[in-house]
Amino acid sequence: MAVLAVGIALQRNLFAVVVLGGIYSFLMATVLVALDAVDVAMTEASVGAGVSTVLLLGALYLCGAEEARPLARPWLPLAIALVIVGALVYGTLGLPAFSDPQAPIHQHVVPRYLNEALRETGVPNVVTAVLASYRGYDTLGETVVVFTAGIGVIALLRVPRRRDGEPRR
């Protein structure tokens, strides 16, 4: 995946970048399966590798597939990015070990979800129970966000009707 990221950064042909991005998404989905997050992996594979690749190809069809050469060498952004990477890696050193049951995140509401979800909601998949029931407000918010994104795209890209009132097709 690191090789792919470097390849995406260096590649000037945007078509290749889109294809590499799709491959990256599929690798990410595999990693998520390995982490037992199958729900997220399905989303990553279908959205990241599937639909957004097609959307990016559609955008390339509209605006051409060759990236313009940058005017200046972007050393400052590179330096900032490296500093942030260093800070994030330093931050991970303070995290509890991977899948440590004593980690703080597993002490708060997780035991209740895992123990009570089946009895309270009758839904064996805890992810679905948490998503749709315990965190129903959050999911409603997410749905509204998706809705807003759709409305925004419609508002930005809609081709206006003709002045004489005829529909556009």
Binding site: D39, M42, T43, S46, V123, P124, V127, T128, A132
Partner: peptide, 9 residues
């Protein structure tokens, strides 16, 4: 409800 997946996927 039973396996991975849901409305979004």
């Amino acid at each position: 409800d039973f396996g991975p997946g849901g409305g979004f996927q």
